[in-house]
Amino acid sequence: MTQQARDPDSWTPWRARITETAMLTETERFFRLEPIDGQALGQVPGQFVQVCLPGIGEAPISVASAPNEEGTFDLVVRKVGNLTEALHRTVEGQSVGIRGPFGRGFPVDSCRGRDLVIIAGGIGLVPLRSLIQHGLMHRNRFKSFSVLYGAKRPAEMLFKEELIAWQGRPDTDFHITVDVAPSGYLGHVGLITTLIPYLEGSPADTSAIVVGPPVMFRFVLRELLAHGVPEDHIWASLERHMKCGIGQCGHCQINGALTCREGPVFSAQELSRLPEAI
């Protein structure tokens, strides 16, 4: 098939077919998408795409997977509005419109040779899955590799099968915690911040990447700094309203920054200069 170059500047979406879809939890739905023209998405972990359905609308959704050999990519969609509700009604075989990938992703290059710590709060695990997959594919690029995942309750955990596989790996330090659990639950119960003092690796050599609700980030940042992780090696991914994904509509402004262009990934140092950020 001739490869037509995709125009990154265009408003015109290209199409991807849903090859697999299933509910991950009661509210989140998983999608595996295959570009119809055969060209891989080419994303950096942490980037997002603008997903659309004709007649419905368009919305930004984080990419939940790292580039792979099959050329597919994954999305996890929570039903919160117009486009996401319509996506929940789609079926395998249907196609959606995609623009992207957009945004500044996780700083995978500047984390090389360092102790990588990934901290996921709730739905924050979705974009971080792309980073975890990337890290595990290139495990030798990092010294230690730790993942902390906090969910509200066991039923709300995402990617349950992969969590088990990740926990079983000898080359990763994987901790899961929940805020509340039914009696009989054998796992760790408690806030994610309580796990930080027990991280492997040297704090000064650590790169910490945190994605979760704003209030969680505030507390995690405090603990990480207290633990000795440098401010310019702590990163977060922020969520803002987006209509275009390409720095034009203005909705994602945080002070003078555009979340879709300078973000969604920002360092703690950058965030300290953006008072509106958290």
Partner: peptide, 17 residues
């Protein structure tokens, strides 16, 4: 799909999902 003028002084401009 159309764009229409909007602005940061208008309520709801920066509201998230």
């Amino acid at each position: 799909r159309e764009r229409c003028r909007d602005g940061c002084m208008i309520p709801g401009f920066s509201a998230v999902a």
